[in-house]
């Protein structure tokens, strides 16, 4: 296996710049060692829905408080679908879907920390101020069949995928599809399998 020669090397990650690799490896190691201690405590959030604050990050946990939309809270931690917050009513766990983390200069790194439950790795927002390809660029593009062939050569078999899942210790679960809250019907009128 060999990668094509790099014509767009500015982003190459698996490539040949050794100091970068070492730095990245160290970053990963530090991240893993860092635990949750490095969590950015300065993140602020705004409550978007009236909701209950609970003692533990679980829907069945004891209610310890209550928040109203618009309230400002400090966002301290994350556990699954829950955020530990500190507000006027004290500290507790609130559904992630009921609080919006305010964006700001430090939000990217702070969110990275909250996403992973570990320290920020600082790789966020390398794309500032740049614009990409527009809708017009896409609709007016000349089809590139060579690139399509390269894409099609990148198939992964189900067996390769299974081996890659096992390598990391991923284990499957039984999880049912979720219907919209409003009613039992799919809004698109199409079943999950497209029928």
């Amino acid at each position: 296996m060999r990668s094509r020669p790099s014509f767009h090397g500015r982003h190459a990650t698996g490539g040949c710049i050794l100091p970068g690799e070492v730095l990245a490896a160290v970053t990963v190691a530090l991240t893993i060692l860092g635990g949750t201690a490095a969590l950015a405590a300065t993140l602020k959030g705004t409550v978007t829905k009236e909701d209950v604050i609970r003692a533990e990050p679980a829907p069945t946990s004891t209610a310890v408080g209550h928040v109203k939309p618009g309230a400002t809270v400090s966002v301290l931690d994350r556990n699954g679908f829950w955020r530990r917050i500190e507000g006027p009513a004290g500290v507790g766990w609130l559904k992630m879907s009921s609080v919006r983390v305010d964006s700001g200069a430090s939000a990217g790194a702070g969110l990275a920390a909250l996403a992973t439950g570990r320290g920020a790795t600082g790789n966020i927002v390398t794309t500032s101020g740049t614009r990409g390809i527009s809708a017009e660029d896409l609709t007016e593009a000349v089809p590139d069949t060579d690139e399509l062939q390269r894409l099609e050569a990148r198939g992964v078999t189900p067996e390769q995928a299974r081996a890659f899942a096992e390598e990391a210790g991923l284990t499957g679960r039984t999880v049912g599809y979720v219907m919209p809250a409003a009613g039992g019907r799919s809004p698109s009128g199409v079943k999950p399998d497209g029928r």
Binding site: M1, R2, S3, R4, S6, F7, H8, G9, H11, A12, T13, G14, G15, I133, D137, L138, T139, A141, V142, P143, D144, T145, E147, L148, R150, L151, R154, V156
Partner: peptide, 20 residues
């Protein structure tokens, strides 16, 4: 056909390991 068209505007990221 749509992918070929979009690839006329986008390049695939040139990193075999990352794509794999």
């Amino acid at each position: 056909g749509v992918a070929a068209k979009m690839l006329g505007a986008y390049d695939l990221v040139d990193d075999f390991a990352l794509q794999a």
